[in-house]
Simulated scan of single mutants.
Amino acid sequence: MALSVENHGTPETPLTVVVMGVSGVGKTTVARLLADRLDLPYAEADDFHPPANIARMSAGIPLDDEDRAPWLRALGGWLRERTEAGTGGVVTCSALKHRYRDTLRAACPGAFFLHLSGGTELVEDRLAHRTGHFMPPSLLASQYAALEPLGADEHGAVLDVGPSPEELVELAVALLRPVNGDLA
């Protein structure tokens, strides 16, 4: 089920999408598929974390706003560069709080936030079966506690993660079409 939120983008602006949500909702999978589907550059937010952030999260210590600030600025820089280059792009980012999204919007005002949302049990189950990731399932509760849903003033939409990643991408493309009419 998709919940559409007010759109502010224009077809003249390269499409930039932030696939957001708590850990385990499938941001990376959906973002990669969406970038491939739309032939856009892709970036993984985890690659922008400094080693100290990775170490904190690996140790089960949630990041605070001070930890996140340079990471968010780096992600915003990537989005701005894609806009300036005219390519657009898709990036993953938890973007849990409105002010985090404000940081990204300051760098890339036209960014569309695709919030992948899922129930706690489903996401806990996904995290329990995930391997090779530094984010421990023990931090999920802190992410849900910090999560501020998209507001009516934010350019984006919410998708429930029940459907397959491929179905989510098709739903996302349908949502993005009014924002950028030349999507195939």
Rank of each mutant, 00 (worst) to 15 (best):
L150V: 03
L104K: 08
S94I: 05
A2Q: 06
A146Y: 07
G118P: 03
L147D: 02
A184F: 04
T83I: 11
D182I: 00
G21V: 06
A106R: 11
V90I: 10
A55E: 15
A95M: 06
E166T: 14
A43G: 12
G110F: 04
G24L: 06
F112L: 11
V173G: 03
A184E: 11
E148F: 09
P163Q: 06
A2V: 15
D47P: 05
H49D: 08
R32E: 11
P137C: 13
L171Q: 12
T103P: 05
L96K: 02
A107N: 02
R56T: 13
R99S: 15
G162H: 07
N7F: 09
E154T: 04
L168W: 09
L114V: 09
L171K: 09
L3V: 08
I61M: 11
D102H: 08
T131C: 01
A52C: 10
A45K: 00
R82L: 12
P41K: 04
M135L: 10
V22W: 01
G118K: 03
R73K: 12
P41Q: 09
V173D: 03
D65P: 09
P50V: 13
D125Y: 06
I61V: 15
T103D: 07
G119C: 00
G156W: 00
A2G: 03
A59Q: 13
L159R: 04
P41V: 09
E81M: 13
A106C: 05
V91G: 03
P109T: 00
D67S: 08
N7M: 07
S164E: 12
T131D: 07
R101I: 09
S4Q: 11
A31K: 03
D65C: 10
A59I: 08
A146M: 11
F134N: 08
P165Q: 11
A172G: 06
A85R: 12
P70Q: 04
A111R: 04
P50E: 13
G118Q: 02
A107R: 02
A55K: 12
H8C: 07
A172V: 04
D47S: 15
C93D: 05
R73V: 15
A128M: 02
G77Y: 04
D182C: 07
G132T: 03
E167Q: 15
D46C: 08
T16H: 05
F112P: 03
H49R: 10
T92L: 01
Y144C: 04
R80V: 05
G77T: 09
